[in-house]
Every structure is written in structure tokens, then in C-alpha cells.
Write a protein that binds this DNA or RNA. Structure first.
Lengths: 148, 148
DNA sequence: TTTAATCCCAACTGTTTCACTCGGGATTCA
DNA sequence: TGAATCCCGAGTGAAACAGTTGGGATTAAA
């Protein structure tokens, strides 16, 4: 039950944009470098995020990507939903049809509770929250980043 | 971010055993039929559960599987852990090493909170809880099961 | 007006995981 | 002895994963 790299990379990328929100578009290659993600692969993820209205893009020189809204207005749940699909542990919760045993399936009620717990965390955390957390962590480390 | 069928089938199977706890071993094929799971595939899952000490097996005629402990003493978290590995959304939480950015990674602290929320649900639910829920659901439906 | 920087798009690819199936062998009860 | 059961390892087709490749379109700056 792991997130794929899509969700992980995608979140890191929008966090990178959130950290620079209001400073104009950020080209993809600088995000890719800072976050150590394959540029072409990240491009595919950003394309999905753009179609979902989370980021906007500008082509040409001096172009790049930026968040389409304030970081306070974008939840992690939104981002993950775009890249990973609905955050539910089993398919029968995602599709409306569900399975035919659902009325008598104790397992399903458990999965439902699990989904609620997950969405509580992801839906209540915004990009701004994480940027703030990031600054807190950085200042604790005296702004020294040991990794390259 | 879905559970594989291993976790889903495995939970259904042990729930089936929990429902018949104390009535002697249940042969694999009856569990497989009731739960509509490929017998040979389920065999592999039961083998893992046996090695993990969740079920015990008896060979030969009149043999089968049964829970090794009371249903009240087995949590869903245990079962899922055996079949799906640690319930954490990203690898860097599962391996002790972690990633080298962890000291300054806001995403990681989010994933940690998510893992805690998930384990809170799964770790506090026992097989007995779900069996009880099952009986409740069945009585609501007047014990009529429309599915085949 | 060219050129470099950038985004946009579709197709291809090697690896891994999934969800099984197949074909046996070992035990135990009747 | 024979049927019922568990035990085990190997094989398999399909899908997803995590990219790579190779172009094209748009825009700002020289």
C-alpha cells in the first residue's frame, strides 16, 4: 500500500512551486534539478496537474509553471487525487457501483473508515502548511543542507 | 494507493475463519468457495499467514486452517502487514535508513502523519470486531443474502 | 528576425508486480 | 489403500511503473 512516485514527485514539485509562489513562473528543469526528478517524467506529471487546474504554465523563454491558486487554497488531497486517483484502499469504494456484497460486507465498512482517516489527514493539510513546516525544519538545521 | 487483492482476500479469508472459530479446521476449498477466491491463489496467502503465526494448519483428510488465536487478539493491522508489508505510504518510512533529506523534508512528516492515521484504524480493529459487524449487517438484512 | 528557452505531445521500452495457473509431492484420516 | 487435505516451486499473460526518445509549438530576447 504505497504511493507511486507520481504522488511523491508531484507533491514535492508543487511544494517547490508553493515555496516560490508569487515570484513568476518557474521552469520545469529547475524544479526537476532541485527535487532530483527526471525532467521528462516530471513533465508528464505537471501536464496532469495543469489539466486539473492546480498549476498554470507559460510557454517560451522566461516561461514555466506556477500554482494557479494560493498555497493555502490547495490541499494535498487534491494533488494526490490527480496523480494517484481516488485515495481509497479498495476499488469497491471508488466506483459508485460498488460490489454486490457491500450491504453485508464488514470488510467494506472497515475500508470506509480507513479511507475517511486518510482523507482527514490529506484533506486538512494545505501546501502552505507544508511550506511552513519546511521553513521550520530548515531553520532548525541552521539553513545548512548537507545533501547535495 | 490501493490494497492489492492479497490484503483484501486475506482479510476476507481470516474473517471467514474467525466466524467459525472453535469449530475445528476449515478446509481451504470451502473458504475459497464462500469468498469467491481462486483456491490455489488463496493457498499462497494462507501459507504466508501460517508462517506469520496467524493461522495454523492441519494436513490430511478433515484437515484445514484455523486461527491460531482468539479473534479478539488478532488485529487487522497484523493480517495486512503480513500480506502487504508495512502499511506506510512511502518507502522512506519503512526502511530504517530513510532518505537523506528526511531532516528537512516536510513531505515526510506528512506521510508520517498519514501512516499514523492508517495504523490507528487498522491497529484498533480486531477480527472479532468485524465478525460482530458482520452479524449486525446480516441481521439487518434478515439473513437473506441476495448474492450467490 | 533569428535563436534560444521553454512548454506540449505521443510513442516506445525495460522492469516489476499482479493475479493467477500448473504440476507435482507429503500427510493424515477412514 | 485411497481420498482428502495441505505444501511447494515454477511458469505466465497482462498491467502498471518509471522512465526515455524524439519530435513540435510558442514566446522572449538578441
Amino acid at each position: 500500500m504505497r504511493l507511486s512516485t507520481k504522488g511523491q514527485y508531484g507533491l514535492r514539485a508543487v511544494l517547490d512551486l508553493a515555496d516560490r509562489f508569487g515570484q513568476g513562473p518557474v521552469p520545469l528543469n529547475t524544479v526537476a534539478e532541485r527535487e532530483e526528478i527526471s525532467e521528462h517524467y516530471l513533465e508528464q506529471l505537471m501536464s496532469q496537474l495543469r489539466k486539473a487546474g492546480i498549476v498554470t504554465s507559460m510557454r517560451g523563454a522566461q516561461g514555466g509553471y506556477q500554482l494557479s491558486r494560493n498555497p493555502e487554497e490547495i490541499t494535498v488531497a487534491e494533488v494526490i487525487d490527480v496523480l494517484e486517483g481516488p485515495m481509497v484502499p479498495v476499488d469497491c469504494l471508488a466506483s459508485d457501483g460498488g460490489c454486490r456484497r457491500s450491504s453485508v460486507c464488514a470488510a467494506q465498512s472497515l475500508w470506509k473508515r480507513l479511507a475517511e482517516a486518510m482523507n482527514e489527514v490529506l484533506g486538512s493539510t494545505t501546501l502552505a502548511d507544508l511550506v511552513e513546516e519546511n521553513h521550520r525544519l530548515r531553520s532548525q538545521n541552521g539553513d545548512i543542507m548537507y545533501y547535495i
